[in-house]
């Protein structure tokens, strides 16, 4: 039973990362129906920017960064990467908003390659060790050791998701996003600055992905310029699992996938866990493309 909870906690932490990234996918998809292949790479950039900031922040490699310093690094990184996300939308996607799907998908692959290999050039191809070490102590709960770091990550992710939910439900910008998702043309006729709202969506998606990036850097200890590829694919799986375009669905999908994968790894071994995730993705796309919470969208495909 202890093992069960241990695996569950691991799954929850990884699932929280998936959820945060899946949110970006699902928001962008919901608003402009674009599958942003480069989104996983924003997570990677987040991890690297956080790495650089942490190293800068404390000359000694960041080992002694306090909670306050860590907070500043988090916010700084998320804002920087958020603007990067906006920039990508402005340069690469906006000119193609009216172009055929195939063109914009290929563009997204190009953006993904560009991000990956520019960070390889910038930060190097080798694995980087994250300049921070969190204390291992924690509390015993139901016979399981849960570290404060794990708890902190789950809480932080939950707060971010709650914040997003409130932002989308309560603010005028959130309302505009929901409206654009429904009918872009009508929105622009009603005086909504569609481009600005789309840019904001990209900002938020990148912002959340960057947060997940730093957290996973701290959690796993090492980062690499290709780390965004697989996790991006899995976050997309999570978004599909929950129902693409659905915010709550993305959160739920991420957690479900994280937990499934943790148990899958535990019972089948680590080398098959990616097959499990992609298998789930394919099964869902084939049998229930609308996901667990997806809207009943009647679409002739």
């Amino acid at each position: 039973m202890e093992i069960f909870f241990q695996v569950l906690i691991d799954g929850l932490v990884i699932g929280a990362f998936y959820s945060l990234i899946a949110l970006g996918y699902t928001m962008v998809y919901g608003i402009i129906k674009l599958l942003n292949f480069a989104h996983g790479d924003l997570y990677m950039i987040g991890a690297f920017v956080g790495f650089t900031l942490l190293s800068l922040f404390t000359g000694d490699g960041g080992v002694n960064t306090g909670i306050l310093g860590l907070g500043v690094v988090f916010i700084g990184t998320m804002i920087i990467v958020g603007f990067l996300g906006m920039g990508i939308e402005r340069i690469a996607y906006r000119p193609l908003l009216l172009a055929p799907r195939l063109s914009i998908l290929i563009t997204a692959i190009g953006v993904s390659l560009s991000l990956e290999y520019s960070s390889m050039i910038g930060w190097g191809a080798s694995y980087k060790v994250y300049p921070i070490k969190l204390p291992n102590d924690g509390i015993q709960l139901l016979g399981t050791q849960i570290s404060f770091a794990q708890m902190g990550m789950i809480v932080l992710s939950a707060l971010l998701m709650l914040g997003l939910r409130l932002f989308i439900d309560k603010t005028i910008y959130g309302k505009a996003m929901r409206a654009i998702a429904l009918d872009q043309t009508a929105c622009s006729l009603m005086g909504v600055n569609v481009h600005r709202i789309i840019a904001l969506t990209f900002f938020i998606g990148a912002f959340l992905a960057a947060g997940a990036g730093i957290m996973s850097g701290i959690y796993y200890g090492t980062i690499n310029f290709l780390m965004g590829f697989t996790i991006g694919l899995k976050a997309f799986t999570a978004a599909v699992l929950g129902g693409i375009g659905n915010i709550t669905g993305a959160m739920l999908g991420g957690l479900v996938l994280g937990i499934l994968e943790a148990f899958g790894t535990f019972y089948m071994g680590g080398s098959w866990k990616d097959v499990l995730a992609f298998g789930i993705l394919i099964l869902f796309l084939v049998f229930k493309p609308t996901g667990i919470l997806g809207a009943k969208e009647m679409e002739r495909m």
Partner: peptide, 23 residues
């Protein structure tokens, strides 16, 4: 399985299959 899917889903499913073959 991809016959009914739209182009962007199709892309990701083929990507997933490619990865599965590699794994």
């Amino acid at each position: 399985p991809t016959l009914r899917l739209r182009s962007d889903y199709l892309a990701i499913v083929t990507l997933g299959f490619g990865e599965i073959v590699k794994i």
